[in-house]
Design a binder for these strands. Structure first.
Lengths: 150, 150
DNA sequence: TTATCAGTAACAACATCTATGACTAACGAG
DNA sequence: CTCGTTAGTCATAGATGTTGTTACTGATAA
């Protein structure tokens, strides 16, 4: 009896990489805490477009993780020490989507199952957030090593 | 200083609901363990298309959670007692995608950050799986109550 | 033999994500 | 004060996933 192939688990172009991008940005900023980095500079490091960086920077700024300055000599820097920034804050700053979704059903048995599932999904998301709370930006920077000075 | 609006966290049409759909199906099958349910019947309960159900059933069958039979009087039923099926098995059966993705970067500092992040993402996924291990299908069925007999 | 049902392929519709160009506002340099 | 640089945002294109749907094939019981 033939079964259909597995769903591909390969990386796809439209995948959501905001959380990882946010972490990347903060790691780069943490490397030189006193320097204002431009979005163009950050974008070059991550091989992407400055607008993509600015979108994530905007979310990080909203969460008070970075400060930005316009005009020439402008750019972005960390708003507080990397020691006091956890990956959970980064996650919550850039990602507001649920981890899982339930199909449309509000009544009958499926409705009740959805309520139960949604409760579990909240717990699962909190579990992930707790996991991310365990790592500070400073710890991550230390783990990957400082970038080579030029 | 104006900041862009938050990413919408509203439910969108193309959201991945396979895990929840799989749980729904198994709950319905668990309600009458000895009866073969047709995909059309299951689809009516979930207000969706029989093919959508059969796609998920196919994954569940691959994981030995259900058995199906073709032909008239055919259909699907649980392959083992609902007491011995955890939601973690359902999750792994229908969802092979990572929880998070990293942007393209394999060298330099971003490359190292990606390695560290990917490790954390695996841990986060395992954390979710452990959470789902804590609930059996039987417990879920008991919690939502048996469906009203007609 | 025939009707029923699983299994699958193919396609449309819809939604998100990144990538990109264009525009506005802020702001420092001269 | 003027000008160039940079953040912040909008709009759109291209790629991709997911559901919904039709159509087809194969198995199987009546």
């Amino acid at each position: 009896m033939n079964l259909r192939p597995l769903y591909d688990s390969v990386r796809f172009m439209a995948a959501n990489t905001r959380f990882a991008t946010g972490v990347h940005i903060l790691v780069l900023l943490a490397a030189e805490p006193d320097k204002l980095q431009t979005s163009t500079n950050l974008a070059e490091h991550l091989h992407t477009n400055p607008v993509v960086i600015r979108r994530v920077l905007s979310s990080l700024q909203r969460a008070d993780l970075i400060v930005s300055q316009k005009g020439p000599t402008g750019g972005s820097r960390l708003a507080k020490p990397s020691k006091s920034i956890t990956l959970a804050e980064v996650y919550k700053a850039v990602e507001s989507n649920p981890l899982f979704y339930t199909p449309d059903a509000t009544s009958g048995l499926p409705g009740k199952v959805n309520v139960a599932l949604d409760r579990m999904f909240v717990i699962a998301k909190n579990c992930v957030i707790e996991e991310f709370k365990g790592t500070t930006l400073a710890q991550l920077v230390k783990k990957v090593g400082k970038p080579a000075k030029k």
